[in-house]
Design a protein around this nucleic acid. Structure first.
Lengths: 218, 218
DNA sequence: CGCCCGATTGATAACGCTCAAGGCAAGTGG
DNA sequence: CCACTTGCCTTGAGCGTTATCAATCGGGCG
């Protein structure tokens, strides 16, 4: 369990308490939903293996991918605000998640300052991630968005001990486009452009970053 | 103090504890900053009077307004994730805020479940607000963005007991544009268009919404 | 084998940005 | 008190980035 998001920064004697809490797990098949918008909120999740997207649906039916959640990352925080999930969580590949009942977690927070600290940190990090994504959507052009996205995914892979330079994008171009606020065609064009310039190598969804500096300088 | 964001949902006997905590206040003059990106995080704030914006600065200098905070709303949650503020908070008009030391608030959370609940709710609401703003930035066109923004401000005014149909936008067109991911000229054009259609009346920053249904149907 | 989904690439068009000019209101200094 | 400056807003013209539409291709799966 030490590879997961929750225990970081906890004292050794608190980890067992947390383990007792998160003992349950669940698998989510590619394309199926972990939870839906409107469902009552009762659990937080930690992605154990695989990856999921969160999707917000506008009343007219338009959909926007609001988050990508890789192994080791948290999921479900969207439900805390209104006791109801406000978006769907859909698996990008066959995945498994740890279930953390929110009420139990809250109770544990009152016993343990470091659990409390950890939960606050998770929420705070989500807030920061989202504001920087707002900056991406509001201020960057298509090329900069795709470059930023590749670097972001790379960094998150590295944090979990995987190669930062070679990884599988589990989503479609359309999902990437939705997340980045652009059409799937523009995503494809930007990736092709990067490949033509020798910045990345690409084979379908498999990406190898050849020139980090070039991506960073955009 | 009952008009503020923090006490909502607390038991009567807990409000005094909270009051002891948030006794200090601070004024922020129009254009001056309450906190800056990079500063160590130690306080949350509740806007008492006036309004502030939060601004994220890209390394190349580009700025994006990531939030507008009206009277009664919370401020400063961006610092929780990394113990450091990640954006600037700047007053849109002469304003005053309550200061809530975060460490003391954390301690109070461990004593009182309802204070804990309240703090979680504030963070959760911020997360939900931000995802729906991501949807706005990623999927709506200029007209829809401005319409959505007007309705949002209207609703937040209403929640505090002010008129939902007539209010002062304290920010410049440029700040609105930055928040909505568009140029100040486009903001101006959209407002003019709404006025021409009789949907709003406008006199500089003073807005009167004449036709809510028209705004909502965009 | 054929079908369908996803990706790529091109052509065209539109939405919104940039640049520019002008106006209005408030503040400043002579 | 008036000329001048300054900041903000509005409006127009032209252009560029990116969306849309369309055709083609390849791979996976029934």
């Amino acid at each position: 369990m030490r590879h997961l998001c929750m225990p970081q920064g906890l004292a050794a004697d608190e980890i067992p308490k947390l383990e007792a809490l998160v003992c349950t797990a669940r698998t989510v098949k590619r394309g199926s939903t972990l939870y839906r918008s409107g469902e009552p909120f009762s659990n937080l999740y930690a992605v154990r293996t695989g990856s999921l997207k969160t999707v917000l649906t506008h009343r007219d039916g338009r959909e926007q991918v609001t988050g990508i959640h890789l192994a080791g990352e948290a999921l479900g925080l969207d439900g805390i605000g209104e006791d109801t999930h406000t978006c769907h969580a859909v698996a990008l590949e066959d995945s498994s998640v740890c279930i953390m009942p929110y009420d139990a977690l809250k109770a544990l927070c009152r016993e343990s300052g470091s659990v409390q600290q950890r939960l606050h940190k998770l929420m705070g990090e989500q807030i920061v991630r989202e504001t920087s994504h707002m900056m991406l959507l509001g201020s960057l052009n298509a090329e900069e968005r795709v470059a930023t996205f590749l670097l972001d995914v790379s960094e998150r892979h590295a944090k979990r001990g995987y190669s930062p330079s070679k990884f599988h994008l589990r989503m479609t171009r359309e999902e990437m486009g939705s997340y980045l606020g652009m059409s799937l065609e523009t995503v494809s064009r930007m990736l092709s452009r990067f490949q033509k310039r020798g910045i990345i190598e690409m084979e379908g969804k498999l990406i190898r970053i050849a020139d980090f500096a070039a991506l960073r300088s955009m």
